[in-house]
């Protein structure tokens, strides 16, 4: 276990705009290492945008992101990313093993090919999510839950310390959901920090130990027992701040 006071992810005044319209306002958050964080909020609250801007997939228009005390760019290998399942074309001519291997590409640079070590790491990751028997299948021939498992295996093969997952529970069967929860807890046991965008408030209280309540701005971040309160949830889900979104609309027209 890492010392509890180490900060896995710190953002300061992280702001994102889409076509000049602000969608995330000045997020300040410091996530302690070894925590399992659920990112919750209503539709359009910017949950996925938050993760994407941390990863640099969506450019931020202000603020900074630090990972384990260093700027994101310098610590990329310590960050694993699980994008939304719908973000890729599952008819792509790659196999389950190919996708898992992609997790090992980060350490290889552009030119080196994956060798035995990488293949073993990918196999182990697939084994862990129960997808090893399907290694040679083209990824389109899988169910939604199986596809999500493959994405998780790819992240596991990255062997990072901080994981950012975008809606891993969407469109999966109950068995896969349970398996993912078990996996997340296991990862926390091994000292990993995991942040998960989650759409179901009901289960969020039991799956995670920390919650990040988001609605265009940070409503609250803390241990579940401190922030899973009617007042804060009401504040998160009680509709947008009307003036904030109106001003955002007007700012977009400038």
């Amino acid at each position: 276990m890492k010392p509890a006071d180490e900060i896995a992810l710190e953002t300061h005044d992280l702001t994102v705009t889409y076509h000049k319209r602000p969608v995330l306002y000045g997020i300040d958050v410091a996530v302690p290492s070894g925590s399992l964080v659920g990112i919750v909020g209503p539709n359009g609250a910017g949950k996925s945008t938050f993760i994407k801007s941390v990863m640099g997939v969506v450019p931020s228009s202000g603020g900074w992101v630090k990972v384990f005390g260093k700027p994101m760019r310098e610590n990329l290998p310590r960050v694993g990313y699980v994008p939304q399942r719908e973000s890729v074309d599952w008819d792509f001519p790659v196999t389950v093993m190919d996708v898992a291997l992609m997790g090992t590409y980060g350490g290889l640079g552009l030119l080196r090919r994956p060798g035995k070590v990488e293949k073993r790491r990918a196999s182990e990751a697939l084994e862990k999510v129960g997808m090893l028997p399907y290694s040679n299948r083209q990824i389109g021939n899988l169910s939604g839950g199986q596809q999500q498992r493959v994405f998780l295996a790819r992240a596991l093969a990255q062997d990072s310390d901080l994981y950012l997952m975008d809606e891993p529970f969407v469109g999966v069967d109950a068995a896969t959901e349970a398996a993912i929860v078990t996996l997340l807890r296991e990862m926390r046991e091994r000292g990993k920090t995991v942040m998960v965008v989650h759409h179901d408030l009901q289960s969020a209280g039991e799956y995670f130990d920390h919650l990040l309540l988001l609605n265009m701005r940070l409503v609250a971040f803390g241990a579940v027992k401190d922030v899973y309160t009617p007042e804060l949830l009401q504040k998160t889900y009680g509709g947008r701040l009307t003036i904030l979104s109106e001003v955002a609309d007007q700012a977009a027209k400038l």
Partner: peptide, 22 residues
């Protein structure tokens, strides 16, 4: 020949490729 793996990776999942530092 040399870039087919990164090019394929990027065509498949651009977001993840950024996360890899490509």
């Amino acid at each position: 020949f040399f870039l087919r793996r990164p090019l394929l990776m990027m065509s498949f999942d651009e977001g993840f490729s950024r996360g890899l530092g490509y």
